[in-house]
Write a protein that binds this DNA or RNA. Structure first.
Lengths: 228, 228
DNA sequence: TCATTGGTATGACAAATATCATTTATTTTT
DNA sequence: AAAAATAAATGATATTTGTCATACCAATGA
């Protein structure tokens, strides 16, 4: 199995402040796992005993609401780390992590993480920064969900998706989601999401190519997301 | 000014893991401030240079959405600490903190906090726990805002308010909010909030006494918040 | 005391969104 | 390739929620 020291993923996340020795320890203890599209990496309510570092692939983080509907809270991709919140607060996992495509993930045991947090102040601060940033994003999302109508939330979501996943060589947002998943992201009925996407296409703001979405008028979307 | 070592507030929050020397340092550097009802302790977008520890009083944490409406994200009270997210992520303040009644607050300079985080692993972990817990709550709220209809969100909010602020000697939720503030918490129009409160009173689930709300049938509210 | 103000309440109506039904397209299985 | 299953699209309609208008009430100050 490859060494953590050589993994380029670590350059992009909180692991970048680790010393050589700490990386060696992680390397020795880590396990590598492969998750198939549709499978769960973590499940809401379950305990967790380590940190996951995504080497490759995309996933949705979801919550099941009391009425049985799935709410997508967040999307993650290669370079993101998962499980830190649950490890730190010593609470069960809060969100389901479901692979949107086949994933390759590294697992680092909880104790190694906690030891390193105590020893390496900079690593500790980096992890805090990640969580702090996530909290800020979550607060923003609460406000948007509560205040914005569905059309604005859809516009916002499309811009977010392009921001997170980038575009493929045809200019399409580089992730494949079902209409239902888009609806579950913005918190609306699948039919409503479909209708609004159709409207956006008619208004020449987006293009629907195969299973992917291409933003053709980003400014229009930005204005729309702000209610203009 | 009183010493941090004697402050009972510290028993209830992340400050409880501080050593005697650390508390002394905080004591020497801290300043005490009084915020009148309606005034802001922190303002969205502003930089922050320390941690606030609420000794007494209640506040709402809000975000102004692009359409100019206020969204209440969270309520805080004596014993809660504020500003840790912003300090740690080195980002501007994310939420306005507005006093719901006169407040007494202690301010501890940022550098003291950062020094202590590096030196005291347990304090560091406690702060992380606080933020992690907040992130979990925020994620839950996203799901509720996105998936639940207004009536269920109101029921949920009333239960939350009683949980946070407790009840006074008449059994009323011990905080005074305007109808507009309740509406801004659940993300609806003021008139809708008023109407739904009136309905709840007619259904004998709550009682409206002066400016306060008394939950008279908690079970009914719980069921309602779950959509039954 | 009266007048003014801000918060609360309620009705009438409009707009947004969900639900149900049906059709069409796309993918998967046989 | 045909059949079956799943996903997407669209119309019709019901429900929820927001907006506007107006009335009411309670606190406050001249």
């Amino acid at each position: 199995m490859s060494k953590c020291g050589q993994c380029i993923i670590k350059r992009f996340n909180a692991l970048k402040s680790l010393t050589h020795d700490e990386l060696e320890k992680f390397s020795d203890h880590k396990t590598s796992l492969f998750i198939k599209k549709g499978e769960n990496l973590m499940t809401e309510g379950n305990p967790i005993n380590g940190l996951y570092c995504i080497r490759d692939g995309k996933a949705k983080l979801t919550k099941l609401s009391t009425n049985g509907k799935e709410q997508i809270i967040k999307f993650v991709k290669g370079g993101d780390i998962l499980g830190q919140r649950s490890i730190l607060s010593d609470e069960p996992v809060g969100l389901n992590t479901t692979a949107l495509e086949d994933m390759h993930v590294c697992f680092i045991p909880k104790q190694d993480i906690l030891d390193t947090i105590k020893e390496n102040g900079q690593f500790s601060l980096n992890i805090m920064k990640v969580i702090s940033h996530q909290l800020n994003q979550a607060n923003t999302l609460i406000s948007q969900m509560a205040q914005k109508p569905v059309k604005e939330r859809l516009a916002e979501t499309l811009l977010n998706l392009e921001e997170i996943f980038g575009v493929d060589n045809e200019g399409c947002i580089d992730v494949v989601l079902t209409r239902e998943e888009i609806a579950n992201t913005i918190g609306t009925a699948t039919e409503s999401a479909i209708r609004l996407l159709s409207n956006l296409k008619k208004e020449d703001v987006i293009d629907l190519i195969n299973k992917k979405i291409k933003i053709t008028d980003k400014n229009a979307l930005k204005n729309m997301s702000d209610g203009y």
